[in-house]
Amino acid sequence: MRNDTPILVKKITALSLITILMVGFFWAFTEMPKGSSVNVNNRVSRLYILKNVKAATKSLNSGNFFAKGMKPLRSDVPYSPITFGKSANLEDGAANVVTSIVVDYRGFDTLGEVTVLFLAATGVAMLFFGKRKKNIIKAQASLIMSVGTRIAYAVILLFGIYIFVHGHLTPGGGFPGGAVIASGVLGLFLGNDHYESNHLGLKLFESLSGMAFVIIGLTGLFSVNSFLANFLPTGVIGDLYSAGFIALIYIAIGMKVGAELSAVVDSMIVDTEEEWS
């Protein structure tokens, strides 16, 4: 019953397909924004950078754009210049514009992506369900290794927390912070032969941080009339206590992602034995 195509034919077909695809892509490059012709002033990101989305929405709703013969868009929207450390009470106080988009302007999108991550982690845990045995790395770790990973774990945990608490000021945020914490947990597994993580605790922690995200969103819904709206004052841009609820949500995301990825590492590294099937 074996009627597979020979490998050489398969490779030649794949190469020709990819060549056609690449020719199409490079042909399309003539129409795409080249490096030297990108103009952010024509894009919607101008509103995010200058933090005047509310002004744009207001003038769009009042019909001013088209009534006065204005060119519909972004460069006509009034804005106030922003200086680091001085401007106060902006509509979004985060100094890191990427963070302000991820958490504030497009926060609902982030909630969906966190849900996808939760489903992936649950799937991994479900497929490896069973009686838990020892972890599969039998490296016979030495004393230096096992003590060193524990000391390094404390430092790595602190660094991860630093990254997600300062997410609105410096590059970083909840997602890389959680990943850094998970790599610390991976180090613990590699360095200690008999290390066992608290699986139930990880799941509980993760669910609680996910619920915190939704509860913060619902607070915005009931106090400002919009889901995931900012309900706290945005202070001076550049302070640690600024940007309203962004720091709170990024702390929740950081804890959730850290617990989730740690649970994934834990499920994959611990050998299980199926009790059912």
Binding site: I137, V264, M268
Partner: peptide, 30 residues
């Protein structure tokens, strides 16, 4: 000019992703 994405890719793509691949390979090799 995307330091956020650079940090995330270095922590996840180069660190955790490779580690998870190696763990899975070890399970299969066993």
């Amino acid at each position: 000019q995307a330091p956020d994405v650079a940090i995330t890719e270095a922590a996840i793509g180069a660190g955790l992703s490779t580690a998870i691949f190696v763990i899975a390979l070890k399970k299969v090799k066993k």
